[in-house]
Structure formats: C-alpha cells, structure tokens
Design a protein around this nucleic acid. Structure first.
Lengths: 229, 229
DNA sequence: GAATGCAATATGTCTATACATATCCGGAAC
DNA sequence: GTTCCGGATATGTATAGACATATTGCATTC
C-alpha cells in the first residue's frame, strides 16, 4: 500500500487500532517495517507515530518498540475562551458591569495562592458578565498592583482580561474547575438562590517572578463545558 | 548562539516570547534565519516552531511567516484518568460497590445523547466508588447491550471501564463538566445533603456506528480538577 | 544458577536537500 | 486608479543517511 502524507499514515494506523487489527497491548511493526509497507521514508512513519503517541493512543519506547496504549483516552483539551468571546460565540450580546474596584488586603486563601510576597494589599475587581442582559458569570479578580501603570486603566470600558493580554508579559499559570454552593453575595448578583450549585473556574496567572492575577469565575446554574475527545 | 536539540530551541523561543523580545502580534524571524542564528538545520527549527504553534503560542502561515499569538492561552489539557487510577494516585485505597445492574428503557435525555437507534432497552449499571472506604463518586452508566457478550461479564469484580477498554473497539467520544445539586438518590449514596453542589462529569463513548456507553459521574463536594497551563 | 557485559535493535533526533503550496507584493494591463 | 497575474518567499512535507540512546536478550564468566 502506498499512502501520501504523514497524516494519511497516521489515520491508517488509527484505523487499524479502531478496528482492532492491532489490539491494546500489542506491539505494532517497527518504523522500518511500516516504512516499507507504506512505501515512504522512516522519518514519515516516525512523524505519524509520534503524533499518535502524543495523543495517547500509542506508547513508544526505544528498543522496546511501539505498542497500542491500554487506556487510550487520557487527555481532554478544553478551549479556555475569554468570557466576552464565549458569550459572543453563542450569538448573544456580551456586556459587563464593574461592581467593585478597591485596594484590599488579600484574603488568606488568595494570598496563599498568589504567593507570600503579595501579603500586602491587592487590587480587587468584581465584575458581572451579562449575556443578552441576563447574568452569565460573576468574576472576582485580585490583581498584583505592581503590574499596573499609575493612572489605572479604565476597566469599566476595557475588560481587565483584554488589557492584561495586550500589556503584561505572561509566563505560566494554572486553572481549576469545581462545583460550589452560591454564597449570599454571588447569589444576589447572579439572581439565584443561596446554595445553588455553581460551576467555578479559578485561574492563576504568574509572571516571571510574582503572581499577576487570580480570577474566580462563578457561572450561573446550567453552565457546562464540553469537548470532543 | 548554538543550542542542541529542538526542545532547547523551543524553550529559547518560548523565553523570548515571555520576556517580550517578541511581542504578541510580531512576526518573528524566518526558519532560515533562526537556523543560521542557532546553528542548526531548518528542519530542527521547524520542529520547534511547529510544536509551539500546536501549543497555541505561535500562529504560522505559509509565506506570511510566524507571529506571536495575540491570545496565547486558549487551551487547557486535562488528564482524564480512570477513577481507580485517580484514587490510587492520591495514595488511597480504591474500592467499588455495584449498586444496581438492570435492563431498562433509556431515560429521554440519555436516549437523546446516545442516539435514536438505542431507544429500546439499555443496560443500566450504578456503582459507588470509594476511596479509603469513604464515598468518592457515584457512577451511573448506560450501556448499549449490543456490545456485550451473552453471559454478561461479572462487573461486581471487574470494573465496567476496565472491561470495555480491553474488549471493545473505541472510536470517538466527548466529555462535559458541570455543577449540579445532589438529588435524593445520589445524596443518600454519597452521604451528603440533598441539594449539595456536586461536580458532574459526563462522558459519551461512541463506537464505529452506535454509541457504546454513557457515563455520568457525581463527585463528592470538594472535588476539583486542576491543570497547569 | 546467578551476575555481568556486550551486541543487536527500535526509536529519537539531526542534517542537507528537494519540491509542494499558500500567500504577499509589485508590476503590467486596462 | 483598479484589476489581474506572476515571481518571490516562508512554511509544510518528504527523503536518505547518519549518529545517539535506551533497552532487550543472549552469551560469557564466576
């Protein structure tokens, strides 16, 4: 068989795994053998198999060969959109209201996440995001004041997120999802009952040295995130 | 400068983006120029840049060149472990109890997800997963009977998941996360109050033609998933 | 029989070269 | 000025060859 392109080879290998020509746990033929079978260079086979290994479908070890993974699905990739884009992608009108913007001492759990160097005061910004005028998510954000210029940008107009993306060097971060009961404050803002189950997204963004910002998003009941495996 | 290995080159490019040598929106030097600067072949540069493009840090187009992405973080990759592995990774003892195993007509929302061809009866399996003897998650699973052999495997001993992985050809699927209030049944099984906020994972697995299984996991309050960006 | 070391092997990576392909830009035609 | 076309250019991909590296399994030694 002659296939053209490493993607065609990848798909053929994927197909053989799906229809169980090669069963989970099996060692599949070596790159050299497959190169001969498919009539291409070994490098092309390597590209295809390396891609499938990255996707978790294959496990490869030097000398030991390539085998079909026993637990093929181990990773899911989620898009993490900016809220505005997420709302607009649903065909709704995105708006936001600035509920608060203060300089406050960091609450203990926030300080713990952002690092001890920031035990002093942080800028606290609270925003309500609306989709077609209906509450969509409540955003509580703590900002490291060191990253802001002295006349603070007008966050009532430009969203903090959009300003940060354009103006601050990003290095790493992490994100977490959880389910929590609505507290009285958030419940009131979102217009739901106290104790309603909310989908929570927490995101920490770190710069080269210190934390830049910590965001906690509380989504209205019914919100869900979904992705194809 | 001479760097060895495409990963070193990738890291150097990443560094330059982080410290804003190259700013979001900038076009960076061509592969040929970088190859000369780093003292390597163009193919090696291509590997490094293609990797960063896959991670969403760069945007590449033929002839137009390579530019630093304007919204660098757009995807998060989560590990989706088998529950047993997830519990054991915490250093806890994984156990499970089979709560129910029946043949039932599919509830409407489940039938809608799994496809109309399965409007008949499905196998329903309910499992409680325990970590160190404490409730960890409630699993409700609907199985397409067509994928099971006639004397049904003994799911009290082998978990359904483990049996499926080893015996059924997998093709695609999707996964969703949500927050929901505990119903009376799940609340009782997990030992929490009715209405407690639960983190829900729903997974649909499709075979080549029909849906294979739909799983709904209700995690105890406090459960969260987290990943580095 | 057990321990050790060496050779065989499969993957990982790099190189140099070549051609394919998309796209930008400038020049020609109107 | 506008439109259209072709050349230049950057990336995408393929090739053969080479060496690196991890690991297996056999053979030798004790």
């Amino acid at each position: 068989m002659t296939l053209q392109g490493w993607e065609a080879i990848r798909d053929e290998v994927k197909r053989r795994i799906r229809v169980r020509v090669w069963v989970p746990g099996d060692v599949i033929p070596s790159e050299a053998d497959l190169a001969q079978e498919f009539g291409c260079a070994r490098g092309t086979i390597n590209r295809a198999l390396a891609d499938l290994a990255g996707a978790g479908l294959l496990e490869r070890r030097r000398r030991a060969g390539t085998r079909v993974a026993l637990l093929p699905i181990r990773h899911a990739r989620f898009a993490i959109p900016v809220i505005r884009a997420e709302i607009e992608a649903r065909g709704q009108l995105a708006r936001h209201q600035l509920l608060a913007c203060d300089t406050l001492p960091a609450p203990v759990p926030v300080a713990a996440r952002m690092g001890r160097a920031l035990e002093g005061h942080l800028i606290y910004i609270e925003t309500l995001h609306l989709a077609d005028g209906q509450p969509f998510a409540h955003e509580a954000r703590w900002l490291n004041p060191a990253v802001l210029p002295d006349p603070m940008p007008d966050f009532a107009r430009l969203s903090v997120n959009e300003w940060l993306v354009a103006n601050v060097a990003f290095s790493t971060g992490d994100i977490a999802f959880a389910a929590e009961a609505a507290g009285s404050r958030v419940a009131q803002v979102l217009g739901v009952a106290v104790g309603a189950p909310l989908f929570i997204t927490e995101r920490l963004t770190r710069g080269q040295e210190a934390a830049i910002t910590f965001v906690r998003l509380s989504h209205v009941p019914g919100y869900r995130i979904q992705t194809a495996l």
